[in-house]
Nucleic acid binder design. Structure first.
Lengths: 356, 356
DNA sequence: TTGTAGGCGTTATCAC
DNA sequence: GTGATAACGCCTACAA
């Protein structure tokens, strides 16, 4: 039987507490607590009675009270720069599988690519006393102060995809630089392209910088010159890709590129639109490669060659890393930068018929 | 200066409390609390001193302790049946804008379309003492007992997209039935199709049933017979759509449909693959319409005509509704079923060239 | 095996 | 304007 109370006129069931169970059974709250938590030193019969009463009374342990006394919330926070990009929901899915298995709750926050909102999100998570934080940097973040403060406070912190380096935090990502280089080399070696453009992400964000560096590595390894006019600033979305591509297409036609490497798939998809508007044929006139393996990539016309970034696995790995940090299970191989393997998915936008 | 303590060998900053600030300033914790929370009855000078000390000491209010006293967590929980479908991340994005504005935290849980995991998720959220729950039913849920229990306990509960009716809970969704009927009529009226198939979602889920009912309404309104053989059970994903379509294509060719209405876009995308494998031309031989407006819809070949389901807005509306329920701002127009407007997005898979 | 005392960090309440 | 006390629900430590 649940005690009833009023709340603005609505009848609301008051929550059952350990104390309620104890009273009903003529026990102390400690015995009930022990029984409920499957601890030793409780008579078998007592335990049964407690469990049954708890079930009957609809008892739900109060995590809040428990957290307060244990200084442990079994909760982790995640800070995402955006939701719209397919990559992040997939990361969440990966994170969630791990948190679910390990009995952690997941608090989701969103920086909307804004440095100040990112700081606010982190502080709220601190207030919520999460046991650890998973974060992917906002595009506009340039100052690592908040991160270092968090680190100093002892709060476990793991970056994924867009990492802050040099502050001693773990990072889970793909090898953006090396994979980008391979993408460039594919464009050059296999297809003999000679003027490769790059739709460059913000270099303040690790993936923006790394993919740009990989682009330069690829050119250099093949004796191709780096040309300023073939590199155009893009954001991480379709619009940015479209505009960056358009800017390059302002060049006289004889200086147009014959290949494009976009910082990610949304940008590549925007760029494809720009190329089509300019009347260029893909891949005959120009090849294009993206990064992410967006669900739309197989459906673009022609299908987009891209780097598969295993978002689900990145999420899983980051969450595992974070929880092992929380549990202080730091193994001997205590690497701080975890690289998840990525693959070049060859479709037809680079010129390979039938994906080979 | 932060007191330091050891945790498994790592130096960890001990958190600053109201009491710490009070001691440092020679005040009582109540005065500090008042100053921090911008309450009256604090001297202006005292307030300044407190705020500055808090800043200097890196104070972060402990929401856990606060929640315990106030019996209010400023946290809401969301239970999603899946993450992979584009629709749900968009809903989250909508929810997040509202929760962020209203100062609520968002706890994310995942039922993975499984009724038991759904129950577990709900119970965990109860344990976390969230102020309210947002939920979209799992595919395998058939028993509403847990929902009614929640309702009875006084926990505000709002369904979105996949609703449980008849239990007095609010529901935010599009008018699935009526919009489906319009989609069917479009196929019939505009394109003169006469044998419309339906890839039917699980009818235990509201959207599955409603879209199926709308399909039947559309046939009936146009004097077309309902034919068992043209209705095939699908799940909500690509594989389900592919298989359901394949099953229909087992019919002798002269009984093949000339139109298909799929329960959602992923199913439609799977169906398109099946149709192509069978050598059917879209839209010449058969027209197809989906539901969702998945980001891939404009990119299928031909572009998929679909119903735009405003996921972001659904999320926003559901969250607003929930929070107004929490705050007991029940207005006079206290509707329990909120219908968000949806549009038929006409592309070419139904036969309309250039989207008109 | 079971119970008692005390405290986690905060705020409501009532006193000064 | 400020402070002392108690309470939120649970658990640790110690006592019986």
């Amino acid at each position: 039987m649940i005690a009833l109370t009023e709340r603005n006129g609505a009848v609301v069931g008051k929550r059952v507490t350990v104390e309620d169970i104890a009273q009903k059974l003529g026990l102390s709250s400690m015995t009930v607590s022990r029984a409920l938590n499957d601890r030793p030193n409780v008579g078998e019969e007592t335990r049964e009675r407690v469990l049954q009463a708890a079930r009957e009374m609809g008892y739900r342990p109060n995590r809040i009270a428990k957290s307060l006394v244990l200084s442990k919330t079994y909760t982790i926070g995640i800070v995402l720069p955006k939701m719209a990009h397919f990559f992040f929901p997939e990361v969440i899915r990966g994170v969630e599988t791990v948190t679910h298995d390990k009995g952690y709750q997941l608090i989701l926050t969103h920086s909307a690519e804004d440095a100040e909102r990112e700081i606010a999100a982190i502080q709220t998570l601190e207030s919520s006393r999460v046991d650890g934080i998973l974060i992917s940097m906002a595009q506009s973040t340039s100052n690592y102060e908040e991160y270092t403060q968090i680190m100093k406070s002892g709060m476990p912190l793991v970056f994924f995809d867009r990492c802050a380096f040099g502050i001693g935090a773990s990072c889970v990502s793909v090898d953006d630089r090396d994979t980008s280089r391979r993408a460039i080399e594919h464009l050059i070696d296999v297809h003999g392209r000679k003027r490769i453009a790059h739709l460059k992400g913000p270099v303040s964000v690790s993936v923006g910088k790394d993919r740009f560096d990989g682009y330069k590595d690829g050119l250099e390894a093949n004796g191709l010159p780096y040309e300023e006019e073939l590199v155009s600033d893009s954001s991480f979305n379709e619009k940015g890709g479209y505009e960056a591509m358009m800017k390059i297409l302002q060049l006289p036609k004889d200086r147009w590129p014959d290949g494009v490497f976009a910082v990610n798939d949304p940008a590549a998809i925007g760029a494809i639109e720009a190329l089509k508007e300019a009347g260029l044929r893909i891949p005959e006139d120009i090849g294009i490669i993206g990064f992410t393996d967006d669900p739309r990539a197989p459906l673009t016309n022609p299908p987009l060659t891209t780097v598969r970034q295993p978002a689900f696995e990145i999420g899983k790995t980051a969450a595992q890393r974070l929880i092992s940090l929380i549990d202080e299970e730091r193994e001997v191989d205590d690497v701080d930068e975890i690289v998840v393997k990525s693959d070049l998915i060859i479709r037809n936008s680079c010129g390979c018929q039938n994906g080979k």
